[in-house]
Design a protein around this nucleic acid. Structure first.
Length: 552
RNA sequence: GCGCCCGUAGCUCAAUGGAUAGAGCAACUGGUUUCUACCCAGUAGGUUGGGGGUUCGAAUCCCUCCGGGCGCGCCA
């Protein structure tokens, strides 16, 4: 019996009361069934009586009592009670709860997946760093979170495209080229340029491949170094993201947006929608029609297109490519763009409530030796994605970045992460997986093929078995809510709770027979439970993009 | 000045308007002749920044004040 199944049972109980005329509610909303925080309150609890009390014109506790009467005859329910202001607490018979283990083992890697977003095509754009330097710690957070979000959305059935927008157009590219060219000539980069040590490396690489560039001067020299440096830096970003297990489906070049005529087409569409006007020799988009602070310039008085013009065209281009929802994961330093981007969607004739979503991620701070690390791109002392991975590894880096909601600022203590200690819960979760794997290996060594034997779910009646089963049953709901709320951290938090439940079970319940003891049905039942738990941990870690090791 | 985000245990952080606000780390006390102790059991730690409001019920929603971060360009 799953929480979803139980919710249907409660809905049926409500409908039965209404149909028999004992209660009058028009259009009762579906019940929500949750696991209570306090285990003494049973396996599941629902607040449906309190929610519907007003519509029914009854006291919450009276309505709850009527529902209790309806529910307690169900063969799958062991006990129903009314508590507090009107909660209905439900305990399942152990066999009904334990069927979950069989369900999970049979569904295998599909357990937790659903089809509730199956009609939706979603573009998830994240990182979108300039190709003028290495990816820093902030980008690393978006890499981990964006990829995990994409995985969670896919698990909910959505068609997802991971997209990286390459800002390869504009004056910062020229600054980039001038900086490399200057260093190649043995000079310092210009004040407005780029100063990190990687510029020196890029200059050396460019010269190694193209020694003839050294003789170029002026704009030709800038362009030559710019293009060669761009190719090298983009390749570096791509390879480090590959290492980080974040694989983009589309790397979309801003230049290509212009070359393909998408910018012109976008402008035409916006004109047709009637939100474009001219003032002071410039062309504007009236984003204030849709809540933006001020209107935005598309074409400057000198005829140059703005960066914002690319943004508008890019959004329209995404919609033309068939995406129902465009998600932009932006850093807090770009939150000023939210208003104008949403307005772009509206100006293009879309619904800014549904077609565009812009979660804002707060920045990542760091402690090293207990002192905040000051990061400055100009000074070139940034901490890069590679640095973090070198320090703690891909699993710990990804996990520690996605286990927090993105809208909360995050402080990473590098010294703690470096210790590879339990301060990083990823080891706690991975260890549970490795521990179960070991038990299953030992079972195999004893010649026990539990899947070939009869599973007697009613034997899993120990309190800690019940709690573990309850946690396992929650997984599909957790994945679904993580997808709907765009909050992949829920999966990580859930895994930690699941791992705790497993360790407690393991501590109290012997799985394999000791010594020469015969194999009993309880051993078989517990092996089913172990296999189910391992499957859910593996599925959850996969949604995080973190490895599930068989040995540690 | 205006706008957005944040403020929860000593530290890092959870909690989809629900019952006694939870974990991990740090501190203290215990537990393994047995399947992986990277584990488990327990103690201690709170005016959820302050104040007001909404309601059966608020860390959560509204108002206000305080504190912190970020952003407010015909730059990209």
């Amino acid at each position: 019996m799953t929480p979803e199944g139980l919710a249907e049972l409660v809905d049926a109980a409500v409908a039965s009361l209404v149909d028999s005329g004992r209660v009058s509610i028009s259009n009762p909303q579906p019940a929500r069934v949750e696991r209570p925080r306090n285990p003494e309150h049973g396996d599941y609890t629902t607040n449906v009586a309190m929610v519907l009390a007003k519509a029914a014109g009854r006291k919450p506790r009276d309505l709850a009592a009527l529902l209790q009467e309806q529910l307690q005859d169900s063969p799958q329910i062991a006990a129903v009670s009314v508590a507090g202001p009107g909660f209905i607490n439900i305990t399942l018979v152990s066999a009904a709860a334990a069927e979950t283990a069989r369900t999970i083992v049979q569904a295998a890697e599909k357990y937790g997946h659903s089809d509730r977003l199956s009609e939706t095509s979603i573009n998830v754009e994240f990182i979108s760093a300039n190709p003028t330097g290495p990816l820093h710690l902030g980008h690393t957070r978006w890499a981990a979170v964006g990829d995990a979000l994409a995985r969670v959305l896919q698990a909910a059935g959505a068609r997802v495209t991971r997209e990286f927008y390459v800002n390869d157009r504009g004056s910062q590219m020229d600054d980039f080229g001038r900086s490399i060219a200057a260093v190649a000539a043995g000079e310092s980069p210009p004040e407005s340029g780029y100063h990190g040590g990687y510029i020196t490396d890029l200059a050396a690489q460019v010269l190694a491949e193209h020694p003839e560039y050294q003789s170029l001067t002026g704009e030709d020299r800038m362009r030559a170094f710019r293009e060669a440096g761009y190719a090298l830096q983009l390749a570096q970003q791509q390879s480090v993201l590959d290492l980080f297990r974040t694989h983009f489906d589309v790397w979309y070049s801003e230049r290509s947006l212009h070359d393909s005529g998408a910018v012109e087409r976008g402008m035409t569409q916006l004109r047709e929608q009637g939100h474009v006007y001219e003032k002071d020799g410039a062309v504007w988009l009236r984003t204030t029609d849709f809540g933006d602070d001020k209107d935005r310039v598309l074409v400057k008085a000198d005829g140059e297109l703005t960066y914002f013009a690319s943004d508008t065209a890019y959004y329209i281009n995404k919609r033309d490519r068939g995406f129902d929802i465009c998600i932009y994961l932006l850093g807090a330093d770009h939150h000023g763009y939210v208003g104008r981007l949403r307005a772009v969607a509206a100006c293009a004739g879309d619904d800014m409530q549904t077609n565009i979503e812009i979660p804002i991620g707060q920045l990542v701070n760091m402690l090293k030796d207990g002192v905040p690390v000051k990061q400055s791109k100009r000074a070139g002392n940034i901490v890069t994605l590679e640095d973090l991975v070198d320090e703690v590894g891909v699993d710990a880096a990804r996990y520690s970045l996605i286990r927090y909601p993105v809208d909360s600022p995050l402080t990473l203590d590098l010294d703690l992460l470096t210790k590879r200690s339990n301060d990083n819960p990823v080891y706690y979760v991975q260890y549970a997986h490795a521990r179960i794997s070991s038990v299953l290996r030992n079972a195999e060594g004893l010649g026990i093929d539990f899947e070939a034997q009869t599973f007697a779910p009613e034997l899993l009646s120990h309190e800690r078995e019940a709690r573990l089963l309850g946690a396992l049953a929650e997984f599909p709901g957790v994945v679904a809510s993580a997808a709907e709320l765009r909050e992949p951290h829920r999966v990580a938090r859930y895994l930690e709770e699941l791992a705790t439940n497993y360790h407690k079970f393991y501590d109290a319940c012997r799985v394999l027979p000791k010594g020469d003891d015969p194999v009993e049905p309880i051993n078989i039942a517990r092996l089913w439970l172990c296999a189910a738990t391992r499957q859910v941990i593996a599925n959850g870690l996969d949604l995080c993009g973190v490895a599930a090791p068989d040995r540690m």
